[in-house]
């Protein structure tokens, strides 16, 4: 998987709308003298975008693995805890209501993604029967529906501005330099660290709540912390790349089918690598296939990921 990620990253740096000889790409990366335009394209556009694709892909892979482990549900993805709906609404608020403040889009998407998750956690984890998986999932579906309806309402009020929103909704990376990562990286860092701490507790949770409790674990706390890590990672990913939650659903399954194990010390890091590799490869395709026009990455992600997933699924069965 590491090899796949390195190959995808190399392709992402080497290919783009403007042809730059491989030698010039390498010279730029090693700080040697190259034509100014090539240097700008590699340093300002391709390099930050490749790093974004790696970070976002890894974040979504880990978020999916965390959630599927925490909720003990193979269908869990960032959609289930309302993050996608919330982030989409946050982005639409900026794009449709105040397009001139588009620099605030990542923060707005992040804030509303986290707000949606917070609402789901409040409903799902508090009160009598709090922490019940069905209750968390149903609360997530309801909150996601609420934000989706609000988003649809906004879009119907401002139909002329919708084209600008499409790329966020179908998911896509942009070449905005390091700006987005400079703002959002602390959230990724917190999310990844939290998720890393959840590897062993999630393994214990796989044995069942009673068994986990008997060895001193607190299932409700593990579930909440893992879901929180997933919410932070998925919101941060949505802030940068729009709504690509499908990656969070697909990647952990793909990794489990490839490795033949559910152990989180394997699933979590390999999901990070696989998510990063798949998103980086899909983004390179999206940038180059109809060059100089850029396509949204979401459909390419599906085109690359689903056949592989179905093939593995068939093989496993």
């Amino acid at each position: 998987m590491l090899f796949a990620l390195v190959a995808a990253a190399c392709a992402s740096l080497a290919f783009g709308a403007v042809h730059i000889p491989l030698g010039e790409v390498l010279d730029t990366l090693f700080g040697r003298q190259v034509p100014e335009t090539s240097k700008q394209i590699i340093e300002v556009l391709r390099l930050p975008r490749t790093v974004e694709a790696i970070v976002v892909g890894a974040a979504l892979g880990v978020a999916g693995a965390c959630l599927q482990g925490a909720l003990n549900n193979p269908l869990a993805s960032p959609d289930v805890i309302g993050v996608t709906g919330g982030a989409g609404f946050g982005a639409m608020l900026v794009i449709l209501l105040s397009p001139a403040s588009v620099a605030l889009l990542p923060l707005s998407a992040l804030a509303f993604g986290l707000l949606a998750a917070l609402l789901v956690f409040l409903i799902g984890f508090t009160g009598r029967g709090g922490g019940n998986i069905t209750r968390i999932i149903l609360a997530g579906i309801a909150i996601a529906a609420l934000f989706s309806a609000a988003t649809a309402g906004l879009m119907s009020v401002y139909p002329d501005r919708v084209p600008n929103a499409v790329f966020f909704l179908v998911g896509g990376l942009t070449s905005t330099g390091w700006d987005n990562l400079e703002t959002i990286w602390p959230y990724f860092a917190v999310g990844f660290v939290l998720a890393a701490f959840m590897i062993r507790p999630l393994d214990r949770l796989m044995l069942g709540d009673d068994v986990a409790a008997s060895v001193g674990s607190r299932p409700r706390l593990i579930r909440l912390t893992a879901a929180l890590a997933a919410a932070i990672l998925a919101s941060a990913a949505a802030a940068i790349a729009g709504l690509l939650a499908f990656l969070g659903l697909l990647i952990p399954h793909l990794v489990r089918l490839l490795g033949g194990t559910n152990n989180h010390s394997y699933v979590m890091p390999v999901s990070a690598l696989a998510g990063a590799a798949l998103l980086t490869a899909a983004d390179t395709l999206a940038r180059t296939i109809a060059s100089p026009v850029e396509m949204p990455v979401g459909p390419f992600l599906v085109l690359l990921g689903v056949p592989l997933f179905l093939w593995l699924l068939r093989k496993a069965v």
Partner: peptide, 9 residues
């Protein structure tokens, strides 16, 4: 949606 690379070039 034009590639930023084309804009720079």
């Amino acid at each position: 949606r034009l590639s930023d690379e084309v804009v720079v070039a």
